[in-house]
Amino acid sequence: MQEWKMRTREIAYLLNPAFCGRILYTTIRAYNEKSHRAFPFPLVYLVLPLVLHKETRAIISSRTHLHIWAQQNPQLLIDFPRRARELIPITNEAVEMLLQTRKIILTPSGELEVPPRSKILNREKYTDSEIAECLTKCAHIARWFEDAGKVENIYISLGVRP
C-alpha cells in the first residue's frame, strides 16, 4: 500500500478508510442483525469490489440469491477476482480503522461483530444519493451472504479463490 501522501487524489478521496469503513460497517451490522451471527472475516474482502463497482452495484438485489445472480450476470464477474485482489489493501485499512475505533470487534473465533452497545452510524447522515445507494446495497449483500451458506461457496460463486 502506498503512503497516504503518495496516492493519487482520486484514490485518496474515493477509497479513504472512513468511506470504505462505513460500507464494511453497514454490511457487517446488517449481517449481524439478520443472522444473529458474527460476520465471517474472509467475506469482508468481497464487499468493496461488489459495492464500489458501479455496474455491479446497479444490479445487486437481495430478491435473487447470490448463486442465481452470479449465473445471470457472468459479465460482471469477468474481472471480479482482479478487483477483489486490488482492493485488499484498501479493505485492510478500513477494517483496521473500524477495529481501532471499536465500531467493530474481532470475536475469539476470528469473526467480526458490531459491539452491542456501540453507537450506530447513521445511514442518512452525510450522504448523497450515490452513498445512500452504496449503503442500501450493503444490506442486500449481507442478506446474500447470510443465505448463501459457507464462505467457500460464496467465493466460488463469485469466481474468487480464497
Rank of each mutant, 00 (worst) to 15 (best):
I68V: 12
I105A: 08
P81Y: 02
A142K: 09
R85G: 00
L87Q: 03
E130M: 09
E96P: 00
I141V: 15
L121M: 13
A132S: 14
H67T: 13
Q100G: 10
P108S: 07
P74I: 05
M97K: 14
T107H: 09
N122D: 15
R57M: 08
N92V: 11
E93S: 12
V95G: 01
A139K: 15
L106K: 13
E96V: 04
I105T: 09
I88R: 10
K125R: 15
C138M: 09
A142G: 11
L76S: 07
S109N: 12
Q72R: 14
E86I: 01
T136A: 11
L87H: 05
E113N: 11
Q100I: 04
E130W: 11
I59T: 14
R117E: 06
L66V: 05
I90H: 01
C138V: 08
L121K: 07
I131D: 03
E111F: 04
E55V: 14
L121N: 05
R83S: 08
T107I: 09
I141N: 02
S109K: 12
E96T: 14
S118Q: 14
A94P: 01
L76M: 08
R82C: 02
I59K: 14
T107A: 08
R82N: 03
K137P: 04
C138P: 09
H140N: 15
I68G: 00
H140S: 15
H140I: 07
F80Q: 03
A84V: 02
E124N: 14
R85Y: 06
D128Q: 04
E133L: 13
E133A: 13
P74C: 02
T107W: 07
P81E: 00
